[in-house]
């Protein structure tokens, strides 16, 4: 199933989506399938699989460490596509990675490899819309969604430009800063949700770690909640990982379901 399909299914039930991020190959390539399945059992509607990069400037310490673990365990772009292609899951998968890895493989090759591996969307945190023309064309040709980020600092003019070029969902960054779990969700989130006017689903991420935060974000008008670092923290602990990932996914999804929309 692709991303728009998943959102229309959820919207028909009046339900918000849980989007879960983990870094592929963290802590080892073999662990990823179990992790992804635990997230889906817990209620993840879409799974973002990070392709780790040596210099992840948009990420905080949690995901930096995950990237280093995965790279040390031998993750690379070839193994990433093999691994993702072998996953037997029904939810849409999204590739999140930095531009140089896409550039080096060749944009068209990268997007075709995504399609072959069953990936339906790509997020590139260091690729603003101005630099995205070529990749956007490859994505459009191969029916892969190119998902853009919108930040609290994004001006109205830029929001319109991003809405024109983005598809799948809009990734609204809840606060300025890098990725990482936080105990509070910035007030800027509700302001940003009301500034972005579109029919494309709006997903809010950066810092979300509890069911209560997830509920709050959906109450404020989000169609989806993205959680990443909080899952990666569990993976990093190495303790009872899959059961705890599933539990946390249940908590977040319950928070989303409890929001009156």
């Amino acid at each position: 199933m692709n991303i728009p399909g998943k959102f229309s299914e959820l919207q028909a039930r009046g339900e918000g989506a849980l989007i879960a991020y983990v870094c592929a190959g963290d802590p080892t390539p073999d662990a990823t399938e179990g992790i992804v399945k635990a997230l889906i059992r817990g209620g993840a509607d879409i799974v973002e699989l990070g392709l780790p990069f040596s210099d992840p400037v948009a990420d905080g310490p949690t995901i930096q460490a995950a990237s280093e673990r995965a790279l040390s365990a031998g993750m690379n772009t070839d193994r990433y596509f093999e691994l993702v292609g072998s996953l037997d899951v029904k939810v849409p998968l999204v590739c999140m990675t930095y531009y140089n890895l896409i550039f080096k493989r060749g944009l068209e090759n990268f997007v075709v490899d995504c399609t072959d591996a069953g990936i339906s969307g790509i997020i590139v945190p260091d690729l603003p819309v101005e630099e995205s023309k070529e990749l956007a064309e490859c994505c459009a040709r191969n029916k892969v969604d190119l998902i853009f980020l919108i930040a609290p600092t994004t001006t109205e003019g830029r929001i319109n430009m991003i809405l024109e070029h983005g598809s799948g969902f809009m990734y609204l960054v809840s606060r300025v800063g890098v990725t990482g779990a936080r105990s509070d969700i910035a007030e800027s989130t509700s302001g940003l949700l009301s500034r972005v006017k579109t029919d494309i689903p709006k997903a809010v991420g950066f810092g979300i770690s509890t069911g209560k935060q997830a509920q709050e974000v959906v109450v404020n008008g989000a169609d989806a909640v993205i959680a990443g670092s909080v899952f990666v923290d569990i993976i990093a602990s190495g303790y009872d990982v899959n059961a705890r990932l599933e539990e946390l996914a249940i908590e977040l999804k319950d928070g989303i379901l409890s929001a009156k929309r």
């Binding site: 531009y99 945190p125 630099e131 919108i150 600092t153 830029r158 991003i162």
Partner: peptide, 22 residues
């Protein structure tokens, strides 16, 4: 749409948060 290239080099490959600051 890319601006400020030196030949094929240059550009602004940064997180969206930084674009208004640039």
């Amino acid at each position: 749409m890319t601006k400020s290239l030196y030949g094929k080099y240059g550009g602004q490959f940064v997180p969206e948060i930084l674009m208004p600051a640039l």
